[in-house]
Design a protein around this nucleic acid. Sequence first.
DNA 1: CCAGATTTCCATAAAAACTAGA
DNA 2: TCTAGTTTTTATGGAAATCTGG
Length: 395
Amino acid sequence: MDYFGSEHEIFQNKELLQVSHLPDGDRIIGREDELTNLANAIKPAMRGNTPNNVLVYGKTGTGKSLCSKFITNQAVERAKGNDVSIGVAYVDCLQESTETQAVQSTGHQLNAKPETGISIPHSGLSTAEYYRRLWRIVDARYDVALIILDEVDKIEDDDILMQLSRAVESGKLTESTVGVIGISNKVRYKDSLDERIKSSLCEREYVFSPYDAGQIREILRSRSDAFHEGVLEDSVVPRVAALAAREHGDARKAIDILRFAGEIAEENDLDAVTEDCVDQAHEREETSRLAELISKSPSHAKLVLEAMALLTQQEEGDDTPVTTNEVYDLYRRLCDRDRSEHLKLRRVRDILSELEFLSIIDQERKWAGKGKGNYMENRLIDDPEVIIAACNESE
DNA sequence: CCAGATTTCCATAAAAACTAGA
DNA sequence: TCTAGTTTTTATGGAAATCTGG
């Protein structure tokens, strides 16, 4: 018995299919203009001057993060030649969703304790103190700090944008300077900003358009070295590209699908990746983003979601809404089952609105009339079975 | 002491049913 | 009969208080 599976090796270098993988070489497919624009905005940093702050828009999977990381890395390398030191921090505002966490993370990335002697504790400091330490670090180690704020629209507080973009003018930094690159999915994001922030953060704005099918094909081909020679059937890449193009040219999705297709071929012990695998991979991709999101949620959020999914399943119709009270009742029973403490109703309401913010559920407030008050209808956006699976998976 | 999570407390929205006035 | 105003109800969500880990 061969416990280690097949002799049909599918992947040669799976790393290439990680979305976070930065392609080497000095170009990213189909984004020449965008890279040039970004480079221009950053250019002053090469001489140690203040770069332009940039706001980058574009749908998911249009290469915003990739290009920003890429160009800043290039900048660091180039600047070395001029004897200018640039520091880059990349903050995912979906994870670091408060001002404090974002500053803390930035400080952590730019710090080198042996060099500066400054420590950035995981918690316990005031926001102001995190800022103070960050400025000290930047002053000590760099001429320019470039801070990439990915998914800025997900951050709860605008203050950080203010602080970062004004750091130089307000004299917080004496030796150095900073540049901010904000990345947002929402084109309307700028409208929600304070005037003062607008003027300083949005010195340059660039919109990343979706990739077309041809570009996606090219991207996939450039990464097909991830597979062993001849393992990919010819029709696979075009098929994946077609699926992704249908979804507003999301390259991340395309790469994910391709990777899943490979995994499926591997699991089924096939010697090649076929179109069939692609179709299955497409389904798997749809659930994986959700599963990812859910697995990162706190455990009580999962229980609430599970309660919702179970209730939705019981109902006849497909997307029958459930009320908050129904959810809460079942949620409490689930907690009893696990012998854990349940949260109070008020908190569960907040959890539900957080889930709505994450686009996992829909909420609508309804009014029942005299003597009946009002209630909130909660509706799952995705298939309950998928949600239940995702909730149980990450235990 | 600090931020972040959770709880406690409570004013409030909305719309149908009901009432009074025309 | 129609209209304008009042009553009734309950989950909601804002605000403040309290708890927790560091």
